[in-house]
Design a protein around this nucleic acid. Structure first.
Lengths: 225, 225
DNA sequence: TCTAAATAATAGTATTACTATCTTAAATAA
DNA sequence: TTATTTAAGATAGTAATACTATTATTTAGA
């Protein structure tokens, strides 16, 4: 039996649902490869179309522009993470262990490299780390789209904030700490890989030490007092 | 007597030094205004030229492209911060107080709105918070330029890391904590202003509470053990 | 006053980011 | 089975962007 994990995406994120058609899946798959390889700035629909073997107009039937495509990817990433987070902490009662598991989930490179899926999560993870901020760090995103885009992110943040409160109901900054955890895991990975002198685990790369740092940071402030 | 603070900028960051000429200063001043107002994506040299009352070609004599201009601004910002950091902690001996002062410096909106200066630091601060990541989150920056751009950032990080070690010589992650402080002050400001639900001080905006959060986070982990 | 540097004015090109239209192929519904 | 949607392919075209090049004019310094 095959189980296909399908993440329900908000309809406003696309013109035509890329998950529903072959071309749509190809668009996502090849975009991820191209952006992963060369970065978002040099990525164009023309190059994508050529890579896929279709035409520019074909892509435009799915996404309004390349920025929307990045938003779609980002939302997909956070949705998937949300799902895996729920899975990870399922049946665990100790909130501290839940939190540790989540930090690990966030900080550790995804290993699920199932080629059957139309989304390569390893590459996507790297893209989000390197380019993810660009999805919402822009002035022209209309408020409603921003809402839709940010929602899975917010949900994950709220989930973590709740667990923090479980650990210590008196802790004053659960949401800020939650968003800090999420941001910092990504940034420390980015720094570790590209600007190692901004970290203490860049040379040699030591993901484990990074997790230790994050755990230390989080638990010292939660447990204090 | 007038004292002009001049920040020495690396020569690779521009074609012609904008600090040396009237047009150059205008370029910086108007870029800051335009990017602050509409964001970096929609900012073009054509619009800038029109705004200044010069031509596109005129701008290109100073900067290779708009991305280089952003790099210049970013480097200027970190240079300025580095200078103000030194100023701020001068004559203070207690490392914990030094650290607190630096957190405040990073987190608090700059007030120095001296119109005489060709760089409006209040706007620049906001630009760096909102668009700063775009300066180095790109694949095509050549390594040497990246070095030059990142240097003042690294220097500031190293300065903070040293103070952290003064506070507690046994602390294991001084550099990661330092880069975390720098990143998080900016992100928490951004979230506070744009995505308040990701923070605990968004509604109403409470910069002071934010500083408390950061201090709590930093000192609980440094002082532990 | 002469010279060199800086700027202004104008023009032009390649690429990007789209939009429009028309045709064909495939899926589905009556 | 045929009719009808629906998706995809093919082709063309436009406005804006991101530059480069050339020449003329102004300004400042020796």
């Amino acid at each position: 039996m095959e189980v296909e994990l399908r993440i329900k995406m908000n309809e406003k994120l696309f013109i035509r649902d890329p998950g529903q058609t072959e071309l749509g899946k190809k668009i996502i798959r090849h975009s991820i490869q191209l952006i992963y390889k060369n970065g978002f700035e040099v990525f164009t629909f023309k190059k994508l179309a050529k890579d896929i073997g279709t035409t520019e107009a074909g892509i435009y039937r799915y996404f309004e522009n390349k920025h929307r495509l990045l938003i779609y990817m980002t939302a997909w990433y956070w949705g998937s993470l949300q799902y895996r987070a729920g899975f990870t902490i399922n049946n665990i009662t100790d909130p501290a262990i839940k939190l540790k598991k989540l930090i690990q989930l966030l900080a550790t490179t995804v290993v699920d490299d199932d080629n059957a899926l139309f989304i390569n999560e390893v590459m996507l993870h790297q893209i989000i780390i390197a380019e993810g901020s660009k999805a919402y760090l822009i002035k022209h995103v209309a408020e409603d789209n921003k809402e839709q885009l940010i929602k899975p992110y917010k949900d994950l943040c709220a989930l973590i904030a709740d667990i923090i409160l479980e650990c210590n109901p008196k802790y004053k900054f659960p949401r800020s700490l939650a968003s800090t955890i999420i941001k910092m895991t990504h940034f420390q990975i980015l720094f570790m890989n590209n600007l190692p002198s901004l970290t203490d685990f860049g040379k040699p790369k030591d993901e484990l030490k990074m997790v230790l740092f994050l755990e230390d940071l989080v638990f010292s402030s939660i447990r204090k007092k």
